[in-house]
Each structure stands twice: as C-alpha cells, then as structure tokens.
C-alpha cells in the first residue's frame, strides 16, 4: 500500500473535502430543484425491494454512483452474531446494493468494518463477508491501525484529529448502510454512529463524550448516501444484543443523503417503543451538519 494508495487517499480526501463542503450542504436545495425528496421511508417485506423503491424515489442509485468510481459500502458488521439477531446489517441488503453498484459500472466496491468483536469472527458470523464477496465486492480488513490514516477534522471542537480508514478516504462514493438498534451508551445507533466503524481509535470519542464527538466524524467527509436497515429493530440489550433482547418488527428502510435526517427519523421509530433520543442528533443539527427537524423536510413515505 503504501505510497500510491496513500497518495490516492490524500487526493480522495482532498477531493471529498471540496465536494463535502459544497455539494454536501447544497444537496437539499439541489434535491428540491429536481423534485427529489430529502428523505425516503419505505415499508415492505423484502429489504432489497424496499431499497429499489427508495432509490427510485431518490432519482436512482445512478445519481450517487457513477461508472468507473470506487465505492465503499459500509455496513455495521461489528458483532460475531448470526444475522437473525439484527446486530449487524442484513447481508441480503448489502449484497443487493453491491450488485447494483457493479451494474452501474463501479470500478471497485469495498466493504469493511472496524469490528467490536474479534474481526475474523464478526466478518464470518455476520454473514456479511460471504454475501459481499459473492456479490462481487472486495472485503477489506480494518483490524490494525496500519489501515487507517490520521486526518485533521476541520471545524472540530472536541476531536481535533481522528484516523479514518484509507478506503473511506479513497472511495469516490461512500454508501453508509447501518442497522438501526438500541445502544447502551449512545442510546440508538444508525447512520452517524456507524461511522465509528470507519475510524481506528474509538477511545477518545468515549472519553470526550459520544454526543459531542459523533457529529464531528461527519466534518471531514460525509457519506454520499445513507441507507438504514430498520426492518427488525433491537430495542434493548444493544448494540451486541443479549439473550433477552426485545425487538420491534418495523419492516422499514430509511434512505437519505443527510445522515442527521436519517438518524432523526430512526429516533422517531425507536421513540414509539420508549427508547429515548440521543443528544448527538440535535448537536449535529445545531452545527449545521444536517437537518434533524423532520417537519421541515420533504419526506416520502412508500410501500414496497
């Protein structure tokens, strides 16, 4: 890896900085012009079909993924547990997204996560390694600091630097595809919190406060699109899940280029079952990283 990838990473980072700074913020305006909604929520029986329906409403995946691009699909695969327990993103959904990216002419599709459980077990037991490889993606390791590069976070108040995975930096397009669930420390985990699997040291975030630092992970480079698997939502015992974890059969998928809007919608799903909303959503909105007030957004509610 080394020098060339590193330079590419830097180049990608710099490019993303430019795009993230301009396009990222003007995306709602752009979407309004084209009559695309800010956020789409789809209810249905099959996550791949719900994804297709959501992207159709958002103007097609081709709006985000261009031919010849390097794409990162970032699931939550942090846990060495079976897919049924919904601690990791649904493998069928991830495989479906990868195939769509390849059909659109993506040069390379990468998948990785800096796992919480042992990385080899988590990659395997989540079913995501096998599903991603079969769909044509390259499953990359993220189990050592050598895969990460330190970056300075522009406009940060708490985290001056963090180490982002080189593929997160290199990717032309980042599809952030988490699973929605309850979280013992952060209350809920969805789009923004999923980026803690794209960095190396999580200790500083815990030390300085998750509510304050999670939004800052989006300051360097935002995901291009966020797609949240909210089909079967873990309500207690998260993020790993325990023997007595309760679930909400929500049968929903939430998609938006705005991670804050996604998290706000997800918090609304959880709130109905008594899970309280984390401060990091409001904090992110207050810092202009996205929009948390759902009443101001153009939301499309669909059924697949």
């Amino acid at each position: 890896m080394e020098r060339r990838t590193f330079l590419k990473g830097i180049a990608g980072g710099v490019a993303a900085l430019g795009i993230g700074g301009t396009v990222g913020r003007s995306m709602p305006a752009l979407a309004q012009e084209a009559q695309f909604p800010d956020l789409v929520a789809v209810r249905g029986e099959s996550l791949p079909a719900m994804f297709d329906r959501a992207l159709e409403a958002l103007g097609g995946l081709g709006r985000y993924v261009k031919s010849g691009q390097t794409v990162l699909v970032k699931p939550n695969m942090g846990w060495a547990v079976a897919p049924e327990l919904a601690a990791n993103t649904n493998p069928e959904l991830i495989a479906h997204i990868i195939k769509n990216c390849i059909n659109l002419g993506a040069k390379k599709v990468y998948v990785f996560d800096n796992t919480c459980d042992n990385w080899a077990s988590a990659y395997k037991d989540s079913g995501l390694e096998a599903a991603s490889m079969e769909a044509g993606a390259t499953v990359a390791p993220a189990n050592g600091s050598g895969y990460f590069q330190e970056v300075e976070i522009p406009g940060s108040q708490y985290l001056s630097t963090t180490e982002l995975h080189e593929l997160y930096l290199e990717a032309d397009c980042v599809l952030n595809v988490p699973v929605l669930k309850n979280h013992g420390g952060a209350k809920i985990t969805a789009a923004m919190k999923n980026l803690m699997g794209a960095i190396w040291s999580r200790g500083p975030l815990h030390r300085k406060g998750l509510d304050e630092t999670i939004p800052e992970l989006l300051l360097y480079k935002k995901p291009t699109l966020n797609v949240v698997d909210a089909y079967r939502v873990m309500l207690s015992g998260g993020p790993r899940g325990r023997g007595d974890s309760k679930y909400l059969l929500s049968k929903m998928l939430v998609a938006s280029p705005d991670a804050v809007a996604c998290d706000s919608a997800c918090a609304a799903i959880m709130a109905g079952s008594g899970v309280s909303t984390p401060d990091y959503i409001a904090n992110a909105a207050a810092r202009g990283i996205g929009v948390a007030d759902l009443s101001t957004l153009n939301i499309q509610r669909l059924t697949a």
């Binding site: 919480c116 979280h183 013992g184 952060a186 406060g209 509510d211 790993r240 325990r242 984390p278």
Partner: peptide
C-alpha cells in the same frame, strides 16, 4: 467523572451482566 455518555463496557458485554 466527565459527565459524558459512554457505555463501552455494556456495549461489548455478551451476557447482559453489565448494563446501562
């Protein structure tokens, strides 16, 4: 000590012995 959210311990606990 810092009055910040954490929960890393409960996050990793597989049995529910540590909970927030």
């Amino acid at each position: 000590t810092n009055r910040t959210s954490c929960g890393a311990c409960a996050e990793l606990c597989p049995t529910g012995a540590v909970y927030m």
